[in-house]
Design a protein around this nucleic acid. Structure first.
Lengths: 142, 142
DNA sequence: AATTAGATTAAAACAATTCTAAACTGTTGA
DNA sequence: TCAACAGTTTAGAATTGTTTTAATCTAATT
């Protein structure tokens, strides 16, 4: 399998050994042509149901965290009980569909670049995150 | 006390009866000249320590939620274990100081207005939230 | 004052995440 | 190749923020 080396490399670069479970995580995260958004539970389910590999939550969490730290994954800020991750690590923003609790990418060409005219003394900007909340027109918006 | 009527009004408009505990919450939230950011625990502590009023978490939560629903408070999206609220309900954005886990207001004049060039079919934009993460220059940024 | 609808509370329940400790496995070096 | 070690997996326990519950209390209404 051609991808195995790529996965192994990503794992090693993240400070992790390539184990059976972790390679399955890589398969899910890094083989699709398209990037996607997921929660930890989504990922666990995919691995157990589609790839028939038993995996514990702890393993999913520690691998995800290492990838995030290394920059192979991004975490998206939403007020939600769960954490959402994105396999697209390039600079881009998101819509959040409140009806479906689902993230939608917002291309750089779909939003004007953001210009911040202020500095916090002694601090450096680490990231600029934009979240555009959307919901169906006719919805109760409590 | 002049403010009592204002507090009572806000509570009633939020569908709540003005009780001793809730009036204390109002005192904390709505009497300061300046708006501020807080977590539920911050609020509980202030009420118990500064105003010497015993209050249960459940009461804090239900009151905060009613105020949020009514629009008297805003919740800020941060990836954090806790929820952050803002007594400033006008349209504005935030810096998040990762060193101190602290929100800082970003005035409308400090950021260019955001222009989204895309519509999600059948959906309406509910809000546009910008979070600018900052941290001290020399910090390990794991 | 009595009634009632809503509020308060401590404690239990809950859900996401983190931690733990024991069993297991990849890696290294003899 | 194999022993030994360091890192990994796992189930389950612990933790944390938040929500729910059910009993008691209180504000509003009569």
């Amino acid at each position: 399998m051609i991808n195995l080396n790529i996965y192994t490399k990503k794992l090693r670069e993240s400070g992790l050994r390539p184990t059976r479970q972790r390679l399955k995580i890589c398969e899910v995260l890094f083989s699709p042509e398209k990037t996607f958004h997921f929660t930890v539970n989504d990922l666990k389910k995919i691995i157990e149901e589609k790839l028939s590999e038993k995996i514990s939550l702890a393993t999913v969490y520690n691998t995800i965290h290492a990838f995030k730290k290394k920059g192979y994954l991004k975490e998206i800020s939403i007020n939600s009980d769960k954490s959402y991750f994105d396999t697209n690590t390039t600079d881009h923003q998101h819509f959040f569909d409140e009806d479906k609790s689902e993230l939608i990418d917002c291309g750089d060409d779909e939003i004007d670049s953001i210009n911040i005219k202020r500095n916090i003394t002694g601090k450096k900007i680490k990231s600029i995150e934009v979240l555009i909340r959307v919901a169906s027109d006719n919805q109760n918006q409590n």
